[in-house]
């Protein structure tokens, strides 16, 4: 291969200079663009699930997961104080539904819906996300119950809507006799009614999911443990705030 090449000195100087300039121009053009970030307003309307399947060229599992990675980048930048605040939830839920139908066995869309998009400080958006989880649960209860169990806790603790939490808990009764369903999930109504704070409930749930072998994926485990730590910090901060208020009022 090397014997077919002439020495670099054989290249005319103007061509070498042209190559260096072309590289410089490319770098300049690239750097003139702002770093590419996906803003909330950039989220396009969701395609039909059939179109997404057709575009996957026979790889619906890979396309569904890549679409989830792409979707979760919208409006989640660290600069945004309230992530997903600007996101159009109608479009978002359209996308989650299309992705779920592209690979019905994937747990990613419901995990994201219940653990990310439902945990926003906007009751209307959170409600839309957990209602989506509920609708999708009804399609395949045996596989999708963990997302609905979490939705029931969110309905109680974040939305303060006990009736909604109980509706989801009752829906979970449908799978109570299925093998592999932990007792706390089968008796979700009692679990919801129990006088537990959000942190205690989340810890019981994570322990239950781990014991039931529902979380074997390291990424999922890392994410859930980080969420519990976050919740712990938040509750500690809230508690300290209350104590400070009490002492200053005295």
């Amino acid at each position: 291969m090397r014997s077919e090449q002439r020495a670099i000195g054989a290249v005319p100087r103007w061509i070498a200079v042209g190559l260096v300039l072309a590289f410089a121009a490319q770098f300049a053009v690239h750097l003139s663009f702002a770093p590419s970030r996906t803003a909330a307003a950039d989220l396009p309307p969701a395609p039909a699930a059939g179109a997404l399947r057709a575009a996957s060229f026979g790889e619906p599992e890979a396309v569904a997961r890549l679409a989830m990675l792409w979707l979760q980048a919208f409006d989640s930048s660290a600069e945004n104080r309230l992530p997903y605040r600007e996101l159009d939830y109608d479009r978002l839920i359209g996308w989650l539904g299309a992705i779920q139908r592209t690979d019905p066995k994937s747990a990613y869309p419901l995990f994201a819906a219940s653990r990310i998009y439902a945990e926003v400080p906007d009751a209307e958006k959170a409600r839309a996300a957990i209602e989506f989880v509920y609708r999708e649960y009804l399609e395949a209860p045996r596989e999708r119950w963990p997302a609905l169990a979490h939705a029931a806790l969110l309905a109680k603790h974040r939305l303060g809507n006990l009736a909604l939490a109980l509706r989801y808990a009752r829906a979970l009764r449908a799978i109570a006799d299925e093998p592999g369903i932990p007792l706390w999930a089968a008796q979700m109504e009692a679990f919801v009614l129990e006088d537990m704070n959000e942190l205690e409930a989340a810890k019981v749930m994570l322990g239950g999911l781990l014991a039931a072998g529902r979380i074997s994926d390291p990424a999922e485990r890392r994410f859930l443990e980080a969420r519990i730590a976050e919740l712990e910090n938040r509750m500690r901060a809230e508690k300290q705030g209350v104590l400070r208020r009490d002492s200053s009022s005295r």
Binding site: E59, A62, R65, S106, Y108, P218, E220, F223
Partner: peptide, 23 residues
């Protein structure tokens, strides 16, 4: 790369994306 950005199904994301690309 995808294992760093996936928050769920990390193993499945890696397997499916790698298999699709290699195929």
């Amino acid at each position: 790369f995808v294992s760093q950005v996936a928050i769920a199904e990390g193993t499945k994301v890696q397997a499916s994306v790698t298999a699709a690309l290699l195929r």
